[in-house]
Design a protein around this nucleic acid. Sequence first.
RNA 1: GAGCCGUUAGCUCAGCCCGGUAGAGCAUCUGCCUUUUAAGCAGAGGGUCGCAGGUUCGAAUCCUGCACGGCUCACCA
Length: 509
Amino acid sequence: MIRLKIIYSLIYHLSLGKNYQIMESELVEQRKKKIEELKSIGINPYANDFKPLHEAKALISSYSSVSEEELKGVSEDFSLAGRVIAIRDFGKSVFFHIMDRTGKIQGYIRRDVVGDDALRFFKRFVDIGDFLGIKGNLFKTKTGELTVNVKEYRLLVKSLRPLPEKWHGLKDVETRYRQRYLDLISNPEVKEIFLKRTRIIKLIRHFLDERDFVEVETPILHPVAGGAAARPFKTYHNALDMELFLRIAPELYLKRLVVGGFERVYELGRVFRNEGISTQHNPEFTMIELYQSYATYEDLMDLIEELICFVTETLLGTLRFKYGNREINMNRPWKRISVIDSLKERVGEEVVNSDEKLFKKAESIGIEHRGIRGKAIVELFERMVGDELVDPTFVYGFPIDVSPLARRNDSNPDIADRFELYIAGREIANAFSELNDPVDQRERFLKQLQLKMKGEQEVYEMDEDFIKALEYGMPPTAGAGIGIDRLVMLLTNSPSIREVILFPHLRPE
RNA sequence: GAGCCGUUAGCUCAGCCCGGUAGAGCAUCUGCCUUUUAAGCAGAGGGUCGCAGGUUCGAAUCCUGCACGGCUCACCA
């Protein structure tokens, strides 16, 4: 049986391979032949000794406003390198565009400048997709485009496969994600999103570093997947013969560091949650968690408000921008509302005050509350109020039973000193004054354990080692987590998380 | 996990309603063309129509199942 399976899969793969060859062969074979020919005449199709001295964007910004007459006075030659992205052959001359990391620029090669052999070589061997080094002076065409009048050129890299179609570009979503390099080549706005992403991350680091936060790295392999309620990815360590989990949050390690004296600390990194995939969710995503001692959750509202405004204004030059068809105004101060008060406004005070009515209301819109009052409240809030919070809004007053790591409010023990930040109807940040009472923490974990017994799948796991750290004393501290991918989505007007993750998770091919 | 939509040439898509063994543009190849930029003109090659069944004299087209993908919803940040 097994043997049969292997044979079938062999046949399948062989035939696939054959098909693949048939489909690819014609064009690829042509180009492979060109490579052989190049080698036979002593030309390296993968040269690495060309040093470009100029860049497309810089040349265009310094010379595109210079008139054709004045350009004739510029005797200087310029050298650039890049990928050929378009060729227009005119017989005795050829126009082409090359693209370097800064942008694209046109080149013009003509027989009476480079000679018959050089032109013929170009027409014979240079294809769209190849890398070229060019050298020449600048001029403007009839249509006014700044163009390099090629005096010398070198083929630097021969490409074997054709680039995506030039009119429509690369639109197929799956190909765009699977072969992101093609997406980056043919869709400049995609590249722009990812450049913005790194700029956002740099700005966040800059902001925190300026305020004496220390960046650290904590384990990704956790013996207990704590710090959040989510199903983890399991893995296995051979030498230790033990099960490990990919982290679902860095929280508990960062708090151990606060115990150890890092009063201001943050980690910016990947976390992993073994849950569904959607336009809002990728199994691995990037978050930042930061902790500040002697601060409260209210202090962190101010800090996060400042941080996000700083990033937004530096990146976009404004605090007002569009996300989808929603207009977002980030001007300060940001609104602050209470979960329970805003829900009362929405469904009536009597519903929120009575467990029975609350659960009934929750069930009526399909919420699984499992008899947890806090869960019913939070879920109702998210569905009925959260979606309408377009301008940045701090939502505070979370029920204690859905906040097992957060400090209990001094005047109301049912409420945690915690807030979430909503922008464009989405949760962007989650923060609280940290629970540093080890006895209370143990009880909260035990309560989670009871929920697990009742069948709740996603609970905060008991972490004895973490409680031990708290027993040594953790200074009063507030901490926050910000979903980087969602922030990037917001600031780049991206409708899907896959547009801001270079290689989003897809089913294997 | 549920609903809706899609899968036809290397790429982007038409053809499907009303069954009669495939079509456009780009790309490729061959000519012509020294200021084009979706360059142009003339010609050529390229497809087991996602897979497997069924109905039929005959299926890209109708029916069923499966695979893959997208969108929406649910869990979640």
